[in-house]
Nucleic acid binder design. Structure first.
Lengths: 362, 362
DNA sequence: CGTCTTTATGGGACCGATATCATCATCGAT
DNA sequence: ATCGATGATGATATCGGTCCCATAAAGACG
C-alpha cells in the first residue's frame, strides 16, 4: 500500500476538517516531510536549518503559495510587528510626510504602520486609540493629539513606548521628538520685528472647544508673547474660523485684516496653507506682496516655494522627523528587549526660517 | 479562610505564570465571576446576556482596563477586521483623499485600514503585498498598481475580494471602481479642440521601465488618440522627466514648450501639480495665462482653484471614490458571508471638466 | 403540574503559529 | 573505544480569544 498522498485532497493524518483552503504551516510541513517547527525556522531564521532541508521546505512553501498568518504568529511570539500612528489627518502634506518617513525607517525591520486619524475630533480620538491598542502595537506614535484623561490612562496601561511627535509638549507622556510650536510663534514674531515692522498681524484659527489639536494655538501664543516683549500690539492677531485651516481660510482672513484701518505691514500665518491663500487673495485684490504687505507662513509646503512671490516661511523637515522617529523606535524596541526601557528621550529637531521674497524690510 | 482575592496580585486559580501584566479575558471573567464566553459575548453581542450580568462584566472590564486582543480574536473567528489598501504614495492629495474616504466608510463597521505604499517601485510592490496578505485582510484595494505575474497569483490565492480603484483596467482582476484615465486624456483633448485651438500640447512624465504606475501614460494615450482623430499633430505632447510629477516638473516642462518655434496655444498637464507649476512659471516669465497660452490640468487639486488665474481642470471626486469603495466592500463582505461572491462589479464614477479661467477660446 | 421551548451561561476544543525543552546523530578529544 | 559538546530537528504546551454544543433555569401550554 503506497503511502503517497493523492494530489487533490491533501487531507492527511490528523484533523480532517478544514474550513478554509488556505495552506497552513502544517500543510507545508507535511509536504516537505518535516515538523512544523522546522518550517517556522526556515522562515524566521534560515541559517538554523541544513541547506538541504531548507530547500525542501522553501519548495513546499512556493508550491503551496503559503503565506504565514501573522495573527497566529503574533499571538504566540507576543510580537505583532505593528507600530501605531495616530494623527489628526492624512490630508495634510506634513502629516503624510511623517507617515512616509516613518514607514521608510520601519520597512527594513519589517514593522508595519497602523495608522488612525482623529479628524480633529476628541471623541474619535479615544475610540481610535482603543482600536489601535487592541491590535497590540509594540509602540505608539502620537501627534500631540492626546488630551483626555482616559486616553492617557489607556496609554500608560498599554505599557509600550509612547512617542509624541511634531510638538514638544511641556509634559510629555514619555518620549518626544519634534519642535516647539511656541518657539515657532516666537521665531516668526522675532523675524518680523527684526525686519523693522511695527504693525504686525497674524492669521490663525480659533482654538474652540473640542478640537484635538492645540498646536496652532501654541504658535499664536508664542507669537503674541514675543510681540508683547517688544512692546508691539497684539490686536492684529486674527483668529478666524476653526481648524483645520486652508487656502480659503487664508484668503478670507487676509481680506479681513486688509480691511482694517490699521492694516498690518506684515502678517504671519499659522500655516503655509493660509499663507498661500493670503498671497493669492492679495494678487486678486491688487495688493502687492511684499511691497504693500509682507506675508510669512509656517510649514514650508512645496507650493510655498512655487508661488509668486515665493513664500518666506518656517521650515520643519517632517519627513526627516518621521525617519528619526522610526530610528528612535527601532532603538527603543531592541533595547527594550535586552534591558529596561531607560530614560525618556526628548529630541528637538529645531526649525529654520526660509527667507524668500514674500517678506521685505519694513 | 476568606476567599476574597488580594487586590494587588490578582494571581488566581490556574495558570500561575504570567509573562505580561496585561489583563486577559480570563482575568475579567474571574473578577466578574462568569465564564470567559460570557465576557466575550458582552463585548461582541451585549444583548445576548442579562443586563445584570452585563453590568458586572463591564465593570470588571473598566476596572482592569481590559482591551481585548484582536490577534487572538482574529485567529479564532477568522475575521481580522482588516482591509488592505495598496497605493503608490500617500504624499499625493488624491490618494490621501481616497484613504480618507475609505476610512470613513469603514469606520462604522469597525474595519481597520492597513495601508502600504509602493513608492512607485514594482519590487517593493510584491514585498508589500506579501506582508499585507500575511495580516489576512478580508479584502484588498489596489490602485491600478499590480502588474507582476506573481503578485496577481498571490492575490487570487488569497481568495478575498479584490477591488481596483482610481483606474478602470481593461482586464480587471475582479471588481473595479474608478474612471478611465484614457478617457481623461480624450476628454481633455476634446475640450481643447472644441475651444478652437490648433496647436495643442501636453505635459507628462516619461513612462520609463519599472514604474508601477501607468495611469499618467494612459491619459496621454487618450490625449494623443483624440488629437489624431481631429487631425492635430501630437508633436507638442512632451514627456519630461519621470513620475511622480511635481510643481517643478510643470515649470520645467512649460519652459521647454514655450521655447519652441511652434509654441502651443493650449497645454494639458497630466496632473494639476504640473499644471500649477506651469502657470506659476508663466507668471515668472511674463507669459500671460490664458491670453498667451491656455493651461488645463487634471485632478482638481485644491490649489488649482486658488491660483490666478484659477485652473481649468478635470475633476474626479477621490474622497467619494474612497467612500463608494468602502460601501462596496461592506456589501461584498456581508454578502460573502451569506452566499457566493457573485459577479465582478465595475463602477465608473466618471469625470467632469471644471471650467475656470486658465483656458480661453483659441 | 408535567413536558416542551426558549433563554442564559458554561465547558472544552480549536484557530495557526512559536517557545521551550527533549532527543538523536555527529564529531573531536581523551 | 568512550564521553561530553555541538548542531539539527521534533513533540508539546501555549498565546488569548471564539465556535460549537451541552446544560440548567425559566416560561409556555394544555
Amino acid at each position: 500500500m503506497p503511502r503517497s498522498a493523492q494530489i487533490n485532497p491533501p487531507a492527511e493524518t490528523k484533523p480532517a476538517r478544514r474550513t478554509s483552503q488556505r495552506p497552513t504551516i502544517r500543510d507545508v510541513s507535511r509536504l516537505a516531510g518535516v515538523s512544523r517547527m522546522t518550517v517556522s525556522r526556515v522562515l524566521s531564521d534560515p541559517d538554523m536549518v541544513l541547506p538541504a532541508t531548507r530547500e525542501r521546505v522553501l519548495k513546499a512553501v512556493a508550491d503551496l503559495g503559503y503565506v504565514p498568518d501573522r495573527a497566529a504568529g503574533s499571538l504566540s511570539s507576543r510580537r505583532t510587528g505593528f507600530i501605531a500612528l495616530m494623527l489628526p489627518t492624512l490630508t495634510n502634506a506634513n502629516f503624510a510626510a511623517v507617515a512616509h518617513g516613518l514607514t521608510e525607517a520601519l520597512r527594513e525591520a519589517e514593522y508595519h504602520l497602523l495608522i488612525a486619524y482623529t479628524d480633529y475630533d476628541m471623541a474619535e480620538e479615544e475610540r481610535q486609540l482603543r482600536n489601535l491598542l487592541a491590535r497590540r502595537p509594540e509602540a505608539i506614535v502620537l501627534t500631540g493629539a492626546v488630551h483626555r484623561r482616559t486616553a492617557t490612562r489607556m496609554l500608560l496601561a498599554a505599557d509600550i513606548p509612547v512617542v509624541e511627535i511634531a510638538d514638544l509638549p511641556s509634559q510629555p507622556i514619555e518620549h518626544a521628538i519634534g519642535f516647539s510650536n511656541y518657539q515657532v510663534g516666537r521665531t516668526a514674531a522675532r523675524y518680523l520685528i527684526d525686519r523693522g515692522f511695527e504693525r504686525i498681524g497674524a492669521i490663525a484659527a480659533s482654538p474652540d472647544g473640542d478640537v484635538a489639536d492645540h498646536r496652532g494655538e501654541e504658535r499664536m501664543r508664542g507669537f503674541e508673547d514675543e510681540l508683547r516683549l517688544s512692546r508691539r500690539a497684539t490686536d492684529l492677531v486674527l483668529r478666524h474660523g476653526s481648524a483645520p485651516v486652508s487656502f480659503h481660510h487664508g484668503a478670507a482672513a487676509i481680506r479681513e485684516l486688509l480691511a482694517r484701518d490699521d492694516r498690518p505691514q506684515a502678517v504671519f500665518a499659522v500655516s503655509d496653507l493660509s499663507a498661500v491663500g493670503a498671497v493669492m487673495e492679495c494678487q486678486r485684490l491688487g495688493v502687492r506682496v511684499p511691497e504693500d504687505v509682507s506675508i510669512m507662513g509656517f510649514g514650508d509646503f512645496e507650493i510655498g516655494g512655487e508661488i509668486n512671490p515665493p513664500l518666506t516661511t518656517i521650515h520643519v523637515d517632517f519627513r526627516a522627523l518621521g525617519q528619526r522617529t522610526g530610528g528612535m523606535l527601532l532603538d527603543l524596541l531592541s533595547r527594550n528587549a535586552e534591558a529596561g526601557s531607560g530614560e525618556p528621550r526628548i529630541v528637538d529637531v529645531g526649525l529654520r526660517v526660509v527667507e524668500r521674497a514674500s517678506v521685505k524690510d519694513g
